[in-house]
Design a protein around this nucleic acid. Structure first.
Length: 174
DNA sequence: CCCTGATTCGC
DNA sequence: GCGAATCAGG
């Protein structure tokens, strides 16, 4: 995958918005989070604002002659990271978030990164359906994401992450 | 276990 | 320049 200008633009934008590297990678598609991070570094825009990354890195594992001890104990996980990609209308969306316009766009921050959801009604929930609420509980059309939950909880894998993980953002020690 | 960003280094 | 592997940490 090439880093076209548009993609780089997206990257910078999303990174500035505070999205994590993996989320950005998911949205751009075709790249891993490492690729994103690597690019971010090359663009010299890491440390999103703060994070005075104090150069404390100097460990480095023996590069030569070591290795080959990464046995194969467990098998893969297969956690598909499905993300709805905005098909079509992907054109001009590169030069619009530049400032100068303060008209609160409020582009409905809905699911910038949320994948598919089945929109089930409460009655249809079962033991294996994601109980992540979708919509406004005060509205009659309130429903739930009904994706299959693995064995890991009341939510589908994706929503589980949204529910918990949001942490890991205040280690500051670096 | 999951995740995060940071760094290094072979390509 | 790119990104996988690795590391360190929450």
């Amino acid at each position: 995958m090439n880093w076209t200008d548009e993609r780089v633009e997206q990257l910078k934008k999303l990174w500035a918005e505070g999205l994590s590297a993996s989320q950005i990678a998911a949205q751009l598609g075709g790249v891993s989070r490492n690729a994103v991070i690597g690019k971010v570094h090359r663009l010299k825009l890491s440390g999103r604002g703060k994070t005075t990354s104090t150069q404390t890195r100097s460990k480095k594992v023996n590069t030569s002659a070591s290795g080959s001890h990464r046995s194969a104990g467990s098998l893969g996980h297969m956690s598909s990271r499905v993300v709805n990609r905005s098909v079509g209308a992907t054109a001009l969306q590169t030069e619009y978030s530049t400032d100068l316009v303060t008209h609160t766009v409020t582009k409905t921050v809905t699911d910038v990164v949320v994948p598919i959801s089945r929109r089930l009604e409460l009655v249809q929930l079962s033991e294996r359906t994601c109980k992540w609420p979708v919509g406004d509980p005060l509205q009659p059309d309130f429903n739930f994401c009904g994706n299959d939950v693995g064995e890991s909880g009341p939510y589908c894998t994706y929503h589980s992450r949204l529910a918990y993980q949001p942490a890991s953002d205040r280690r500051r020690i670096r």
